[in-house]
Amino acid sequence: GIDPFTGEAIAKFNFNGDTQVEMSFRKGERITLLRQVDENWYEGRIPGTSRQGIFPITYVDVIKRPL
């Protein structure tokens, strides 16, 4: 089901994660935001896939912030 505490964002740019914990994505992908890790990073996942990880806040347009 849908978790009411998650947020939502759209990727503004392609992001290629450097490490296992970073999640790569392509511009235009819809991302579920799980939490804000710190002032620069979100943790999120791509709905319908097993992809999950952290990524820079500046790479996405936030539609709804996670609670």
Rank of each mutant, 00 (worst) to 15 (best):
P66F: 04
I46A: 02
D18C: 15
V37I: 14
S24D: 06
P56E: 03
S24M: 04
P4A: 14
M23Y: 01
N40F: 14
L33C: 07
L67G: 15
K64A: 06
R45P: 00
R26A: 11
D3N: 11
P47A: 11
I2Y: 13
P56H: 04
F25Q: 00
V21K: 14
G48C: 10
V62R: 05
K27R: 10
P47H: 10
N14G: 06
F13K: 11
A9Q: 02
N16I: 14
L67V: 15
Y59W: 06
K27N: 04
I57T: 09
T19S: 12
R26S: 12
Y42N: 01
V62E: 04
V60Y: 01
E22F: 12
R65P: 15
E39C: 15
L67K: 12
K27L: 07
E43D: 06
G17F: 02
I54Y: 09
P66W: 03
V37R: 05
E29N: 02
E39L: 09
F25G: 00
F55T: 00
Q20R: 11
G48S: 06
R51I: 05
Q36N: 05
V37G: 01
N14C: 08
T49W: 02
F5M: 12
E43W: 13
G44M: 01
M23P: 00
G1I: 13
K64W: 05
R51S: 03
D3A: 11
G1A: 12
G1M: 12
T19H: 11
I57V: 12
G7Y: 14
R65E: 15
R45Q: 09
T6E: 12
F25M: 04
Y42Q: 02
L33V: 09
V21H: 14
S24N: 07
N14H: 10
R51Y: 03
I10C: 07
T6L: 10
V21A: 14
P4D: 15
G48M: 07
R30E: 05
Q20A: 15
E22C: 15
E8V: 13
F5T: 13
A9G: 10
R45V: 09
E29A: 04
F5V: 10
I63A: 05
A9F: 04
N14Q: 07
R26G: 07
D3Y: 12
G28A: 04
K64F: 07
Q20F: 11
N40E: 12
G1Q: 12
Y42M: 11
I57Q: 07
G28V: 01
E29K: 01
S50K: 12
A9D: 00
Q20W: 12
K64Q: 08
L34T: 08
P56R: 04
I2K: 13
Y59S: 09
T19Y: 07
A9E: 00
T49K: 03
T19W: 06
T19P: 06
T32V: 12
S50T: 13
I46H: 02
T58G: 12
G17Q: 04
A11H: 00
E29H: 02
R51T: 03
V62H: 04
N40I: 14
T49L: 03
F25P: 01
L33D: 04
V21W: 14
E39Q: 10
N16C: 15
I2V: 13
R51N: 03
G28L: 03
D3C: 15
V60W: 01
E29R: 02
E29V: 03
F25W: 02
K12C: 09
E39F: 09
I10H: 04
N40V: 14
N14P: 07
G28P: 01
I63W: 06
L34A: 03
G28S: 04
D18N: 14
G1T: 13
T49S: 09
S50H: 10
R65G: 15
T19N: 12
Y42G: 03
G17C: 05
A9T: 03
I63C: 08
V62P: 05
I54T: 06
E8D: 09
Q52E: 08
P66E: 08
I57K: 11
I31E: 00
K12F: 04
D61I: 15
R51A: 03
G7Q: 09
G28D: 06
P56V: 03
R51Q: 04
I54H: 05
